[in-house]
């Protein structure tokens, strides 16, 4: 990037929450997810190269940069990314419906609208 380029802010003002007891785990999550994104970007780029080679035989860097996936290709890529996400993050997904909990404890009431103050 040239020195004269306007730089935009990159960090949001406000405290970043910590979800795990060890802050290093929070940081590791960021590393892993960012890396997953970059692998996906690379995969799209390889896909672009393969498609262009199929249709043109020989290509330049400009051909790659100028390529925009048509809707049909983007749908294929979405389907591929869906499978990719399921594989990479397979240890952490759950869509089973919750089982009803049998207990004799008093169930919590739904929150009610407060009475209007006089």
């Amino acid at each position: 990037m040239p020195e004269t380029q306007i730089r935009l802010p990159r960090v949001a003002k406000g405290k970043r929450p910590q979800f795990f007891d060890d802050p290093a785990v929070d940081q590791m999550m960021t590393f892993i997810i960012e890396l997953s994104a970059e692998v996906s970007v690379l995969y799209d780029r390889v896909d672009t190269i393969e498609r262009l080679l199929d249709s043109k035989g020989t290509i330049s860097r400009t051909d790659i940069e100028n390529y925009r996936a048509p809707d049909a290709v983007e749908s294929e890529r979405m389907a591929r990314r869906d499978g990719y996400l399921k594989r990479v993050f397979r240890m952490h997904q759950n869509t089973t419906l919750p089982k009803a909990v049998k207990s004799k404890a008093k169930p919590a009431p739904k929150e009610k609208s407060k009475k209007r103050r006089k």
Binding site: S36, V41, E65, R68, E74, M78, D82
Partner: peptide
């Protein structure tokens, strides 16, 4: 551009996931 679009699409699909 090419890679920016790809990155944005990943984030979208990640959120859908």
């Amino acid at each position: 551009n090419h890679d920016e679009a790809s990155r944005q699409n990943f984030v979208n699909d990640f959120r859908v996931h």
